[in-house]
Amino acid sequence: MATKKEPIWIARDFSKCSGCRKCEIACSLWHENRIWPEASRIRVFMLVPGVEFPHFCAQCEDYPCVKACPANALSVSDETGAVLVDENACIACGQCIDACPGRIPHMHPTENHILICDLCNGDPQCVKVCQEGSWNVLRVVPRKDYSYGLYARKPEEITRDLVVKIYGEKGEEFL
């Protein structure tokens, strides 16, 4: 087998997101072999037009979702640092959603298990397409002891910040 992978993190630069949703397409093609936005582990929210951003696991330092799972369906990959879902063990109770500060995990639309970014086993597909198009919203960086968990925020919270950054104070009117 290949040498041990370095744990990684996907750095994210929300305000540059074009809303092209190529990350959703790439993620769902990789995991489902279908174009399936609602089954993508990364989802582009657009609660306000022009204020799109990708919403996906931040790989928190303390992984509250993993701790909250009553079925031991979630684990942390020591290779990549990703949260791994044991699809058979998952009972679709949704407790990880409530435990996640960003309510990032979401249920598979047709299967009975949760969806969380698995970092594509160390080769993130979403990053590739975002880089190919030179939007550079997503970038792979080595995982360090930084406060990644800060990025686990709810779509509304992220929108609230971005809408003002992009549109100025008038932005708040659109929420």
Partner: peptide
Amino acid sequence: FPQKGEWKE
């Protein structure tokens, strides 16, 4: 459909 988690728009 509360079981989904967060719904996208």
